[in-house]
Design a protein around this nucleic acid. Structure first.
Length: 304
DNA sequence: ACGCCTACCTGCTTGC
DNA sequence: TGCAAGCAGGTAGGCG
């Protein structure tokens, strides 16, 4: 479900609804949801009594900044959702962690497929990551180490909507890679936050074939792709995300962006630009949608 | 670096 | 109707 626009929507909803709220306690019903600290009882103990200062996002992860400087990370993966419920709502069989808030509401982490992970970290080091080249602190040994939020994102690529993500920077990164564009857009260490939906949408908008090798792009191709990536993400946010099946924002409302997608899950339907049918192929084990006419197949090689 | 595979999980849709 | 296969927005780890 969640790519950058969906996660951003969740984070904004939560900022509005739980910033300032205090967590009384937490109940974990699926242990593996808790990534750190382990065991989950320790997580529950350590989060209890914390007040949420503000809510943000990095890549596809929701960040809940606590008053004491620590940060709770929630990676929703495929089916995770953070939902605020009023007191007295019926229990949710898919709730994996329930945070009871002091005002009587619940903050529920719901996750049908159980892929999502929650962590609680000491603050610090996030800024350098957001800026890009993190110094990556490999130092401390397991056991005695203090887990810092910065380490969680040390391997991530740039935020595509950041001002620092310029065409020049994108061009430089692309020029050093020979991988397929689709694969690279999904690679979180190359660029953070893009997933299967928005990768396909951006490539269609930029008229680039998913199998095109990154280092074969001309300057004008890079410029179009840069603009396309940022546009589809911004439009996704404006529409509160794309919803298939179980994605919802923090207030339980689905997003409206699914109907506005040009290629994703539109196999055999007419391309909005040329009217020819959208095709589905598989790239890197992920289903990939494109218009074969608007996004011409890259030629094998040979200069010509 | 790159590509492919398996694993993690459950539910919904499709086809026989 | 029933049942099995195929599909799903994500990512980590292993192998060649």
């Amino acid at each position: 479900m969640p790519e950058l626009p969906e996660v951003e929507t969740v984070a904004r909803d939560l900022q509005r609804r739980v910033a300032g709220a205090t967590i009384l306690d937490a109940t974990v019903t699926w242990d593996r949801t808790i990534r750190h600290p382990r065991p989950p009882e320790r997580f529950a103990t350590e989060i209890s009594g914390s007040t949420i200062r503000r809510v943000g996002r990095r890549a596809k992860t929701v960040l809940l900044y606590l008053e004491d400087g620590r940060v709770m990370t929630v990676a929703l993966r495929m089916t995770g959702a953070l939902i605020v419920t009023e007191a007295g709502m019926p229990p949710d069989p898919y709730a994996r962690v329930v945070f009871r808030l002091a005002d009587g509401r619940d903050l529920r982490y719901r996750d049908v497929r159980k892929f999502g992970r929650i962590g609680l970290w000491s603050g610090g080091g996030l800024r350098s990551v957001g800026a890009g080249r993190g110094a990556r602190s490999r130092r401390v040994a397991e056991g005695s180490r203090r887990y810092r939020i910065g380490e969680v994102f040390s391997g991530h690529g740039p935020e595509p909507l950041a001002r620092t993500f310029t065409v020049a920077r994108f061009a430089e990164r692309l020029s050093r890679r020979s991988a397929k564009l689709k694969t690279l857009l999904l690679d979180q260490s190359f660029i953070a936050g893009v997933g299967n939906i928005y990768a396909d949408e951006a490539l269609w908008r930029a008229r680039l074939h998913p199998l095109r090798a990154a280092d074969t792009l001309q300057d004008h191709d890079v410029k179009r792709l840069h603009r396309a990536v940022r546009q589809v993400l911004r439009e996704g946010i404006a529409n509160r995300g794309a919803s298939f099946s179980d994605y919802v924002g923090a207030d339980g409302e689905p997003g409206a962006n699914a109907e506005r997608l040009a290629v994703y899950r539109r196999t055999e339907q007419p391309c909005y630009r040329c009217g020819r049918p959208i095709r589905r192929i598989v790239v890197g084990q992920r289903s990939t949608h494109l218009c074969p006419h608007c996004q011409p197949e890259p030629v094998a090689s040979a200069g010509t």
